[in-house]
């Protein structure tokens, strides 16, 4: 059981850096503080960079889940507007 409820999902498996994080930022913009975003991303560069970039923006990274198909789900809680 997940201890959080996902409010919105954004899929960035179809884009490459830096548009990956750009799409995440746009999605976060739409959320209220305290809401939770699930980001579906590819292995490799996105998994290395997007969680770090989210932290640098002051957001809280809750979990990184391996989907077993080469993609990951990053769960981020919006802390800053």
């Amino acid at each position: 059981m997940a201890d959080y409820i996902v409010d919105e999902t954004v899929d960035i498996t179809d884009v490459v850096c830096p548009i990956t994080f750009v799409k995440v930022k746009v999605a976060l913009e739409e959320l209220d503080v305290g809401q939770i975003l699930r980001i579906r991303m590819n292995d490799g560069e996105p998994v290395q960079n997007v969680p770090r970039s989210c932290k640098e923006e002051g957001q809280q990274v809750l979990k990184l889940l391996c989907n077993g198909d080469g993609t990951y789900d990053l769960i981020v809680k919006k802390l800053e507007d």
């Binding site: 830096p18 548009i19 750009v22 799409k23 930022k25 746009v26």
Partner: peptide, 23 residues
């Protein structure tokens, strides 16, 4: 809302914490 083309064009502004989507 930004078009995909705008997201790509302004990507390096948008990823800046100080500018972002709002800026």
């Amino acid at each position: 809302a930004f078009s995909n083309e705008q997201l790509e064009r302004y990507a390096r502004h948008i990823i800046l914490k100080e500018i972002g989507v709002k800026g």
